[in-house]
Each structure stands twice: as C-alpha cells, then as structure tokens.
Computed example of a mutant assay.
Amino acid sequence: MSASPLSPEYIKIRHAHRQFITPEGGIINALDDISLSIAQSEFITLLGPSGCGKTTLLKIVAGFEELDSGDILLDGQSIIQQPAHKRPVNTVFQSYALFPHMTVGDNVGYGLDIAKVNKIERNQRVAEALNMVGLSGIEQRLPSQLSGGQQQRVALARAIINRPKLLLLDEPLSALDKNLRLQMQLELKNLQSELGICFIFVTHDQEEALTMSDRIVVLNGGKIEQVGSPDEIYHTPKTEFVAKFIGESNILSGIVINKSETEIEVDCNGLTLHSFDTKPELGEEVKLLLRPEHLSLTPNDHEGARAQLTMKLNQTVFIGTDYQLHGELQNGQSFSALTRKTNTPLVNGSELTLYYQVNALHTIPSKKKSTKGHI
C-alpha cells in the first residue's frame, strides 16, 4: 500500500552505516547509524560542514554508493539492491553534467530516448519540462550558449522529465552568483510544490537551508545532530553544534543558580542572565544561546524586553541598515549584537547597555550537575 503524501515514512532510512578507509589505514565513519523518515511531498535539506556525511547519504539513496549496513525504503520497498539506473530517483549535480555536444532539447530528452519513448510524446514532454523551468523555446541551443542559471534549469528539466518519485539535489546552486542563487532558491521551492514530489537537497549554506526547507537535517561527523523545521533549528537548537553552525550566535556557559515556575537564573562566571526556559534543573550546567539580532540598545526596541547586560565595545561594522557591534562582557567573554541605526554613540572602548527579551534566551542542557554550591 502506497504512503500518502503526508506520510512521514514515504522514504525511510534505517540505521545507515558507511565506512571509508583512509590512505593512512584509518577508518572514517561517513554515516554512523543514520535513521530518518521523509514524507512524500517534503522538501528536506541535508545541512552540515564538509565531511559531515550529507553527500555520502545522498549518493547512497541515488545508488552511487553502497551501505555497509542498514536499509533504505522508498514507498515501502527496499531499494538498496536496485542499481542506480533502475531506481525511481533522479539527481541534479553541482556541475549540471550537461552533454556539451547536444542541444538543450536533446539533453532534456536523453532519458526518454534511452527509454525509447515515441518521438511525438518525447517532444511534448521535453517542451513541458522546459516550460516548467521557464525555458520554453530554447530547445535548439547548446549548453555553451546558456548562462549558468539557464544551464541549471536545463539540468532540472532533464531530472524531472522522467517523473521520478524522488529528486536529489547535490549543491546545485553553489556555482551561481548571489542574486541568481537567491532567485533560484525560490524557483526550486515553487517547482517542488508544483511537482508534489520529495526533494532531498544537500547544502552547506545555512541561509539556503532556512529559505527553502520544510525540514532540515543537521549532520556532523556522520551523525544527525537535529531534525526540525527551519524555525525550530534556528530558534531552539538542541545542541551547541547546531546553535553555532546555524546563524550568528552568542553562546555562554553557566550554572542554574535559581529556579521558579516561570524563570531560571544562570550564573555565567559572575554574570547573571535570566531565561523563561525552565527545563534545566537547579545546579545544572547549561549553554545559553542569545542571537545578536535579539539585542537592542534601548529597552523599548523589543516588546517585553526586561533584562540587560553590559558590553565593552571593541569594534563597529556598518552593513547597510544595521550595525554589527563586537566587544566583551564583564566576565571577559566575546559578545556580538546587531542593531539598527541609533543615536547612541558607538565609541570603541565605551560601555554599552544591551537589552534582551527573557524569552529570547534559549538554554541548551548539558545533562550534567555542577559540583559548585547554588542558591
């Protein structure tokens, strides 16, 4: 029985493990017991630094790499024994991999030619695919006569023409300039919605992942750090790695010294901060995340701002509408804030009072108790 479009188990990766032996004789766990379920019409992004395992996982789903152990199910059926060319999966590569001697129409229709689809249907489907990616009427051009963005669209048209159940995208936008990349992010998301199939997208670009994804899978060292919506990943990271990897962050270490039903106080080496996150226990060591954009120079900039701290200003960077402020707190820790143009003098060496909403301070539990006394 086929899974419904909303089923979270249309694609199911079970305990995937893949090792590589280095030239020096060592072992790298590229995938270390990865399990993941994906819905049929979901845009999911594999995000992480180089070497985290995201491309290895994509290649294994595509059939270009083999698992050492584990399984991959598509619509309830295991596909690990199927060769790549027989899987109902297509891949768009970073390099686009267009045939330079073939016209656009022949590049897009190549898969149909291999499948011996009759010429009338083949030409109709080529035209439909090109229209879907906004390239109608260029069937006779060669790849060398196209811009980078047009080549990327041709690669997409070639990938979707066979009507795959799953489309894999391996950093397909990385070679584009910033403005075109931003445009293509929105177009890819719209295309995925129109096709109604699952896209698995690989990137190391945080902004790209946050912009396009229904869910993000953050990978590190062959393991999954966190799976969640862009909002969850950004605002409530579960680990320090995710907090540091996604967006700009201020992370402080502290001990919960006071706790009520609605609030905790955390001692960060002599600096006391307040949070509404009451999950940590009294005496627990925690990491605190405070995004630079959640800080302001006046208490009324954010509704409900009621906590403050002092930063010695070391550097100011103007980035158009905003100022990046870099300095250090009274406990000596480096700290950053992002604020709009202000009448407050920004003089290096001066002390600035920064305000933040208590509910903007997110805690990352370390699951350890402090040996120090607490109030």
Rank of each mutant, 00 (worst) to 15 (best):
N179D: 11
L191F: 13
Q150T: 07
Q150I: 05
A209R: 06
L156E: 03
S193K: 15
C198L: 03
V218Q: 06
D214C: 03
S147L: 04
A159I: 03
C198W: 06
L182R: 15
D231Y: 13
L167F: 08
L191R: 10
K165Y: 01
E232Q: 15
A209P: 02
L146R: 11
L135H: 10
I161W: 01
L168G: 12
L191M: 09
F199L: 08
Q183Y: 08
E194H: 10
D177N: 13
E171A: 12
F199D: 11
E232Y: 04
S144G: 15
S144E: 14
A159Q: 05
L180Y: 09
G134S: 13
L180M: 14
S147D: 08
L166W: 03
N179F: 02
L130N: 05
L146D: 10
E128V: 08
P230H: 09
K165P: 00
V154H: 05
V133H: 12
V227R: 08
P164A: 01
Q226S: 09
S147Y: 02
Q206V: 07
V202K: 13
E232V: 09
Q140F: 01
M132H: 02
E171Y: 02
P164Y: 02
E225C: 04
L182H: 10
R181Y: 08
E207Y: 02
L176A: 06
Q183A: 09
A175F: 02
G148M: 11
L188W: 03
N179Y: 06
F201S: 02
S174I: 12
P164L: 01
L176Q: 12
V202Y: 10
Q124V: 07
Q145V: 09
A129C: 08
V202W: 05
D205L: 13
Q206I: 07
D177A: 11
R125G: 00
G222I: 07
E194R: 15
H204C: 09
V217K: 04
F201C: 03
P143K: 07
I197V: 14
V217T: 12
L219H: 06
V217F: 06
V133W: 12
A127W: 00
S193P: 00
M212N: 08
G137T: 08
G222K: 09
L191C: 10
Q150R: 06
D231F: 13
L186D: 11
L130R: 04
N162L: 15
M184L: 14
A127M: 01
L167Y: 08
S229V: 03
R181P: 01
L173I: 07
C198H: 03
C198V: 04
D231P: 00
V218W: 11
E171T: 09
S213E: 06
S136G: 13
E194S: 14
Q145N: 12
E187Q: 14
L176D: 06
F199N: 07
G196V: 12
L180I: 14
L130E: 05
G196F: 11
E128K: 13
L182K: 14
G228R: 05
V154A: 09
L169M: 15
N131Y: 00
S229F: 03
G134I: 07
G134T: 10
T211A: 15
S136A: 15
D170F: 10
I161C: 02
K223F: 01
S147H: 03
N162I: 14
G196R: 12
Q140S: 14
L180K: 07
V227M: 10
F199T: 08
Q140Y: 06
Q183T: 12
E171M: 05
S174C: 10
S193F: 00
L142F: 14
A175S: 15
